[in-house]
Structures are given as C-alpha cells and as structure tokens.
C-alpha cells in the first residue's frame, strides 16, 4: 500500500475493531480477543512494539495496541499480499542489527524512522491509525466521549459547559429551545 492511501483501507478494519471492542468491553479488550490466525508469535510481538512506538501514548496499556495487532492479523488473513508485506518488513527490521524487539525504545523509533516510507510501515501505521483511535477504551483514556446519539446528544451533556471564559451574549449565542 502506498503512503497515505489510508483513507481507502475500507470498512472491514474499522468494523472489526468496533466488533472486538463491543464484545470485550472497554477495560480488557485483549483478553477477550480471539487467537491470532496468521501472524506468528514473534511477528505479533514485533508489531506490538512497533505500534507502541508509532503512536506512543504513555497512558495506554498494551491492550489497545494488541487490538491493532489483531486487526493486522485479520488483514493478513484476508489478503496474502498483506501477510507477505508484514513478514518481509519484520525480517528487514530484524536484519538492521539486533532484533527489533530487543532494542531500546529510542532505538526502535530510530529504526522505524529509517523505514517510514516503506509499504510495510505505511500499512501498519494506516491500520493502527484507524484501529487505535476508533477504540472506545482509547477514547476513554484520551478524553473523547464519542457517539452521542444513544444518550440524546450533548444538548444535556455539557455541550456548553465551558466556564473558564465568559458566556457570549444571547444576540451571538441564543439560549437552547
């Protein structure tokens, strides 16, 4: 996959994430995730470290990153060319000195910087971008409340609760109905 074709990844990845999250609940998605079908344990471990370095949120534990690895596993199962890109990408990463998983975090980031324009890196980043930030457990930690329809919107849930600035006059911002 070429750089930044991420908008065309398709619905499967996103829907897969949503389904996994709803089954697993928001706290421990990884424990309820199904076993890997295509990725080998070393590949999965490498991808876990890699996804942590790509979007390194310190407040997040490994669970949402495992969800990304599962989405990559799903993508690899669905398309053998994806499995090949991942397999070869990891081999390349491991051939740059020590095995990737044994590097310090700083050196892992430096190694990824060297391959950031590769199809492998772009595929992982693309899937991670859509998966990680669509994960309700991540929303909770990063402070996004997400879908509002189920509780009637934000009209009674703080859409105008900001109190550290004065309220605009009614001529600019009328009261709600």
């Amino acid at each position: 996959m070429k750089r930044r074709e991420f908008l065309k990844v398709g619905a499967l990845v996103v829907m897969g994430t949503a389904a996994a999250a709803s089954v697993a609940g928001i706290a421990s998605a990884a424990q309820a995730a199904p076993p890997l079908t295509t990725l080998q344990p070393h590949q999965a471990e490498t991808l876990l470290k890699m996804t942590r370095r790509i979007f390194p949120h310190k407040q997040l534990d490994d669970a949402p990153y495992w969800n990304v690895v599962h989405d990559l596993d799903t993508a690899a199962k669905a398309d053998s060319s994806v499995a090949k890109v991942i397999g070869e990408g990891i081999e390349k990463l491991d051939s740059m000195g020590k095995r990737f998983v044994e590097l310090t975090e700083k050196k892992q980031t430096a190694a990824l910087k060297q391959i950031e324009s590769s199809a492998f890196f772009q595929k992982v980043r693309t899937v991670e971008l859509q998966s990680l930030y669509s994960d309700p457990s991540v929303w909770k930690v990063l402070g996004y409340q997400g879908p509002a329809y189920k509780f009637g919107g934000y009209i009674h849930r703080g859409f105008d609760d900001l109190a550290w600035l004065p309220n605009p006059p009614e001529s600019a911002s009328p009261k709600p109905a």
């Binding site: 934000y154 703080g158 605009p168 600019a172 911002s173 009328p174």
Partner: peptide
Amino acid sequence: IPGLPGNNNFKVMYN
C-alpha cells in the same frame, strides 16, 4: 428562526 445555541468550541472562538 432563532440562531442555534453556541457550544464550547464557539465560546472559545467568540471570546
């Protein structure tokens, strides 16, 4: 038709 009520994002913009 009255204007819509402004949300937090608008409060920041307005001020």
